[in-house]
Amino acid sequence: MTNPKPLKIAIASGKGGTGKTTLSTNLAAFIAEQDEVVLVDLDVEEPNSGLFFNGILTHEEDIFKMIPQWDESKCTLCGICPKVCNYHAVIQLGPTILVFPELCHSCYACSELCPVDALPMIPKKTGTLRDFQIEKLHFVESHLDIGEEQAVPLISKTKKYVARKYSHVSITIFDSPPGTSCLVMEATKDADFVILVTEPTPFGLHDLSLAVETMRALKKPFGVVVNRYGIGNDEVIHYCREENISILSKIPNKRKIAELYSSGKLMYRDFPEVKHSLSDILDYCITAVRGGIA
């Protein structure tokens, strides 16, 4: 597995609760049995991969975004700033300019277009990044601060930290947020391969099809892992066949797996078939990205 080209795998899903974290944590721990690996929890609104690892904190930093701050003494109340703000983060109520930092997308429009420099940009803390080490596994997570609405800048900065610090590590796994929003696109856009985790239920299928559309729009190579296989129906399997989507693995539905998850434990060591699945999934990703298929 020592290959010069680092491999970035994003683990996403349409539906929440299908097993992104289960797969991310188990896959990362499985790889770390032999090789150095980075697991990054990009579900910054509710990161939970960390529950499965008891590592040593190696680095912690506050993450900032830039927001405008009104300088009343310079302001001429010309009315430009509320008009140019697409996000209604700057409004003018008579003689007062109000800035709503949580709504701000740090686009600088109000600040740059202010003719008298009355909206200088200042840093505002938006979250905290933590980096842990558990033998060969590096685990990086970011928490968005309570009340913050913009998770994209935090996800972006977390990825930059990882790219800077771990460019030498051959495999990085990104545990993405659920859904198909901007957050998911930000979390998956640099990935070489995206694994969509789903469950064989009507909800799972519905949201999987949205996630598939998203990945096709992003032109990402992707495959599907069916978790909790054995419940629901066969529609997800039929859908993947019709759409020519590879199913990398089917992880069986087992009470014991849920028990281990709910007590914060990894499960692959207790289930040889799951260990095989992880091995298959990893081989598929490596082959798909490093050109073995061609």
Partner: peptide, 15 residues
């Protein structure tokens, strides 16, 4: 059409 900021936009209008 706004994902966020509807409250502040409407407040501006009310003002």
């Amino acid at each position: 059409n706004d994902a966020h900021g509807a409250g502040t936009a409407t407040a501006q209008k009310i003002f």
